[in-house]
């Protein structure tokens, strides 16, 4: 439906648009981290795209890849009624992505959430603190190498004789796939 957005992006940015696809009918474009703010701004301001509505910003973790963190930005245009998903990829060692704080007001909380759960650092965000979890939480729980069973008790476990173990121990580790 919104193929013309992908075409428009490709003719404007050329090789800077690394990949385009339409999985299940939703248009997706992938850009490098450095082009992230420019492409996002173009999507908002260009009259053909006119993505005035911010829908979602989140992340997915693919530990098999070198640039394992994939940031998703979903936009919608009230006027044209089309939507697009813009992605960029960063590595876990250098998880910095330029912030889009100035472009849409709603970005604020969603970038904080992606930082909170995935550890993506949005450079330029003025108030990047945890939002769903508490200050002092260690690690980023939606990364695949964060064990689902891992506990971070605010009050430590009591020392008990070895016969009385708590119902769950510390990190057991969890496979992230059934492959």
């Amino acid at each position: 439906m919104a193929q013309r957005i992908l075409d428009r992006l490709k003719e404007t940015f050329g090789a800077k648009i690394l990949e385009t696809s339409s999985p299940s009918g939703d248009e997706v474009a992938v850009v490098a981290r450095d082009d992230w703010p420019a492409v996002a701004r173009f999507l908002r301001d260009d009259p053909v795209c006119a993505m005035d509505m911010f829908i979602d910003l989140t992340c997915a973790d693919y530990p098999d890849r070198r640039e394992r963190l994939e940031v998703w930005l979903r936009l919608y245009s009230i006027g044209h009624r089309h939507r697009v998903c813009l992605k960029t990829r960063v590595s876990a060692e250098d998880p910095k992505v330029p912030s889009l704080y100035d472009l849409w007001r709603g970005i604020d909380w969603f970038e904080r959430e992606a930082f909170d759960l995935f550890g993506v650092v949005f450079a330029g965000h003025p108030d990047l603190r945890r939002i769903l979890l508490y200050e002092g939480f260690e690690g980023h729980p939606l990364r695949k190498d964060y064990a689902a069973e891992k506990t971070q008790p605010l009050v430590g476990y009591r020392e008990v004789p070895p016969t009385k173990v708590p119902p769950f121990g510390t990190a057991e580790g969890m496979p992230w796939s059934r492959r």
């Binding site: 709603g106 909380w109 969603f110």
Partner: peptide, 19 residues
């Protein structure tokens, strides 16, 4: 596989509350 790799729930309240 039979297990979701990632499920992202974009709840409307989160954005509404941000305003």
């Amino acid at each position: 596989t039979g297990t979701p790799y990632r499920v992202r729930a974009r709840g409307p309240c989160f954005a509404n509350l941000a305003a």
